[in-house]
């Protein structure tokens, strides 16, 4: 696998995400740049089966994007891999567009409703259970945010998935450590996700969520099913590479300044 290509794609997706946000300020930019490398590894790394020409193909792996707001980076990515035309990116939020401030399943590539948090893991567990009942081999990926983990329904789903040995499930936590109003540790305590997931019966791994090699390596090794559902804690930085927004406690509700926007486009830098 050409990991350099995934790095190039990550840069491209970053720049285009910034442009999408500039077009439609209601989109959440800070939480949408933290999972860029995770999505790029899944889509460009050959780790997830998908068919843009047949979005509900029976043999697709299912991707449930539970942290809907923080996935605007998927707009340019889904366009890039062929789910819809790139011209759609120029009209985000407009009357004619299906790409809104929060992604909805009218967008090709999205499976479920994602604007309300804490639903993805339980729905994914039902999908995983269905595929197990049918003896099918497809995988289910669930993308969640660490702030979202405050939602109690997720923990109901975690217990269910472990008890039912849903080994076809891989949850990924975009652990950017900031919720809407503050650092999550100030809201709900120090980060102990690994211990929590382990005690709920999940196999846990933790990586740098911006490091393509680490992300690819662990997800590649997880192509072989284990004996428990798996969760990857991907440590990320909210608002990464956006001047004035990166790692700010209120970054979720911050919009990019004109100065930052120009700087990002002119420098064209992402590493």
């Amino acid at each position: 696998m050409n990991l350099e290509l995934i790095k190039e794609k990550s840069k491209q997706i970053f720049i285009e995400t910034i442009k999408v946000h500039w077009k439609s300020k209601e989109t959440r930019v800070a939480s949408s740049v933290s999972p860029i490398e995770i999505f790029c590894v899944l889509f460009y790394g050959g780790l997830m089966k998908y068919d843009p020409k047949n979005r509900f193909a029976d043999n697709r792996d299912r991707l449930i994007v539970s942290k809907g707001h923080g996935s605007i980076c998927l707009y340019p990515l889904l366009a890039d891999v062929g789910y819809f035309d790139k011209s759609e990116l120029a009209i985000v939020g407009d009357k004619e567009s299906f790409l809104g401030g929060i992604p909805d399943p009218v967008i090709p590539g999205y499976e479920t409703v994602n604007g309300s948090l804490g639903h993805g893991l339980g729905v994914a567990s039902g999908i995983a259970k269905a595929l197990k009942l049918k003896g099918k081999k497809e995988k289910i990926f669930v993308m969640m945010g660490d702030g979202e983990l405050c939602e109690g329904a997720i923990w109901e789903g975690l217990m269910f998935a472990a008890h039912h040995k849903l080994t076809n499930m891989i949850a990924i936590i975009d652990n950017n450590k900031i919720s809407m109003l503050d650092f999550t540790k100030k809201i709900i305590g120090e980060d102990s996700w690994c211990e929590k997931f382990q005690s709920f019966g999940w196999e846990v791994a933790r990586v740098d969520g911006h490091n393509i090699e680490q992300l690819y390596s662990i997800l590649k090794s997880w192509e072989v099913e284990g004996d428990r559902p798996r969760v990857l804690i991907a440590d990320t930085i909210k608002g990464r590479m956006i001047p004035g927004i990166e790692n700010q406690p209120l970054s979720h509700v911050m919009s990019i300044s004109e100065e930052s926007y120009r700087k990002i486009l002119e420098e064209n830098k992402y590493e």
């Binding site: 499976e111 479920t112 729905v123 039902g126 999908i127 269905a130 329904a153 109901e156 789903g157």
Partner: peptide
Amino acid sequence: AEQNLINVGTGLALEG
């Protein structure tokens, strides 16, 4: 766990 009841049920229904 009624919240999970609905969520898991949704997942199963999505698969037919």
